[in-house]
């Protein structure tokens, strides 16, 4: 039992950062991200047979966490408006020409959190976790067209947040 717990701690330490980085992108609070991360570890620790040792661990673990994040997202979606606007624009130093290149993970998370939930989910799934629009449509219960459209709007909003001045000029020119 004790030995088992130690092995579990080793695994937890190794994959904590990796798992947390996924969960933070999908959730709105750190506590929620931690809960989902722990749910994911529980899948592994309580039923290790679910993981096939012949397969690489990271993609499997990512899939487990993303599934749980999506379920959590669906629960929250019932309570919040899908077209909820951007509430907080992170204080990115937009006067710097290379803002995107110097972007840190924390800032990325802040930017993603500023996206409406539906855009955020599609952007995370497609861009950062490598799912196809077909898969996303099935996972979120939306059409492929909606998935593509949400992704496009998510990108647009991110660009806007990353470089508001450039975006402003571009909008004025149109």
């Amino acid at each position: 039992m004790e030995k088992n717990r130690k092995d579990q701690e080793v695994l937890y330490r190794i994959y904590y950062s990796y798992g947390m980085s996924i969960c933070l992108r999908y959730t709105t609070t750190r506590d929620e991200a931690k809960e989902i991360l722990h749910d994911g570890f529980m899948v592994l620790f309580s039923d290790p047979k679910k993981f096939d040792p012949k397969q690489p661990f990271k993609p499997w673990f990512r899939k487990v966490l993303v599934n749980r994040c999506i379920n959590s997202f669906k629960k929250h979606l019932r309570n919040i408006s899908e077209e909820g606007g951007v509430e907080l624009i992170p204080d990115l130093r937009d006067d710097q020409p290379n803002a995107l290149e110097n972007l840190q993970f924390e800032e990325l998370v802040m930017l993603i959190h500023c996206l409406p939930p539906a855009y955020r989910a599609v952007f995370n799934l497609y861009v950062l976790d490598g799912f196809s629009h077909e898969e996303i449509s099935k996972m979120l219960g939306i059409s492929i067209g909606t998935s593509k459209s949400n992704l496009s709007r998510a990108r647009e909003k991110l660009r806007e947040m990353l470089n508001p001045k450039i975006h402003e000029r571009k909008t004025l020119r149109q």
Partner: peptide
């Protein structure tokens, strides 16, 4: 844009939290 954001996402280094392990 996707490539850069993916790189940022993959490079995440979140410090380990003993408190979180305690809860786990």
């Amino acid at each position: 844009l996707d490539r850069i954001l993916r790189e940022v996402s993959d490079s995440a280094d979140i410090p380990f939290s003993e408190e979180d392990w305690g809860e786990m």
